[in-house]
């Protein structure tokens, strides 16, 4: 239970950065932290206490494996997270080239 709650606290830290920070890079860092928290929470749902890695061995019988399904789904989620992060950073770099700042309040005020 305390582990779940620590995951929730990690998500809240990321959410604080998204809501309150003005620098675009800090907001991107917040999004990445939220991704960490969600991936870890999904993986925690499939953990079996004192379980084994889900890999069979020819020599011995392995009975108590952890749940392999969340691992497979989180594997997909990690790669997609990298791709979206690259896209967001690309947009941020172009915004810096156009406006000369990362501050979103200044970007909002500059109209042309």
């Amino acid at each position: 239970m305390i582990t779940y709650f620590l995951c929730l606290v990690l998500f809240t830290v990321g959410l604080y950065a998204i809501l309150r920070k003005r620098n675009i890079i800090k907001m991107i860092i917040g999004i990445i932290i939220c991704e960490y928290a969600v991936n870890l929470l999904l993986l925690l749902f499939g953990y079996k206490m004192n379980g084994r890695t889900p890999i069979y061995s020819p020599n011995q019988e392995i009975l108590d494996m952890v749940d392999p399904l969340p691992q497979a789904l989180v594997l997909t989620s990690l790669v997609i997270g990298l791709a979206t992060t690259a896209l967001i950073v690309g947009i941020a770099i172009r915004l810096y080239e156009k406006y000369g700042t990362f501050d979103i309040t200044k970007i909002r005020n500059l109209k042309n």
Binding site: M1, T3, Y4, F5, L8, L44, F45, G46, Y47, K48, M49, V66, D67, P68, L69
Partner: peptide
């Protein structure tokens, strides 16, 4: 989070 299954006891129906 209190409604979730406790840590260390997954459901594992599909798995």
């Amino acid at each position: 989070l209190k409604t979730l299954p406790p840590l260390g006891k997954p459901l594992m129906k599909i798995s």
